[in-house]
Simulated assay, not measured.
Amino acid sequence: MENAALLYQQYEMIRGSRGVVLQFAETNLPGQLHTPVPAFVDKSIAYLWVHNANVYLHWMANFTMKLNMPYADEKDYPDLQSIRNFYIQVDQLVISFINTYENRLTETINGITASGKQAQSTPLQIFTHVATHEFHHKGQILSMFRLLGHIPPDTDVIRF
């Protein structure tokens, strides 16, 4: 399978898992999207979703593609529809990233990290990082669901 097709397929699985979490939140969390969760230093589910999308922007758009896209603030996303719309932009970014680097996945790219440090990475490392980062925070969001009194759904890539 060619590189781009494999990455598109991988990202579709990530989107599918994200979709399950978003759908669960729409059905079960009215009014709790921005509820601070003490076990997570009073961060909210909305905060984690926006933070995660910002990581896609940072690594794919700004570090790798040099697009200088501004980061989002949680307060600008009052509801799940606005968060879904933000992820539509993330999806478009990922497609652009894959199209740009499909034949250069191991090329070294120099860039600036969010903390302002010079760093090197490859597009494959960047793709892997943002995917694993999203799943890390998805686990935290599922824990937040539980702490807010909800039994979270099965969100694995392979769902039964």
Rank of each mutant, 00 (worst) to 15 (best):
N54D: 09
V55E: 06
Y56R: 00
L57E: 05
L57H: 08
H58N: 02
H58D: 14
M60R: 03
M60I: 14
N62V: 09
N62Y: 06
F63V: 14
F63H: 01
T64W: 01
K66Q: 12
K66G: 13
K66I: 12
K66A: 12
K66M: 15
K66P: 04
K66D: 09
L67G: 12
N68K: 03
N68T: 11
N68M: 03
M69E: 14
P70M: 15
P70Y: 11
Y71P: 12
Y71D: 08
A72H: 15
A72Q: 08
E74I: 14
E74N: 14
E74F: 06
K75I: 15
K75R: 11
P78Y: 10
D79A: 08
L80C: 05
L80A: 06
Q81N: 05
Q81V: 03
S82N: 13
S82P: 03
I83N: 14
I83V: 15
R84D: 00
R84A: 00
N85W: 05
N85K: 07
F86Q: 15
Y87L: 15
Y87N: 00
I88S: 02
I88E: 15
I88V: 09
I88W: 11
I88G: 13
Q89H: 14
V90K: 04
D91M: 07
Q92Y: 07
Q92H: 09
Q92A: 09
L93I: 07
V94F: 01
V94G: 00
V94R: 01
I95W: 10
I95H: 08
S96W: 05
S96T: 07
S96G: 06
F97K: 00
F97C: 01
F97D: 01
I98M: 00
I98Q: 02
T100P: 02
T100Y: 03
T100C: 06
E102S: 12
N103G: 11
R104C: 11
R104I: 08
L105F: 02
T106R: 12
T106I: 15
T106W: 09
E107R: 04
E107N: 06
I109P: 04
I109Q: 07
N110D: 10
N110F: 10
N110E: 11
N110R: 04
G111L: 04
G111C: 09
G111M: 04
I112P: 04
S115R: 10
G116V: 03
K117S: 08
Q118F: 09
A119P: 11
A119H: 14
A119G: 13
Q120F: 11
S121L: 00
S121T: 07
S121D: 09
S121Q: 01
S121C: 15
L124T: 12
L124Y: 05
L124R: 01
Q125N: 13
Q125P: 03
Q125T: 13
I126W: 15
F127T: 01
F127I: 01
T128C: 06
T128D: 15
H129D: 06
H129P: 00
V130C: 07
V130F: 09
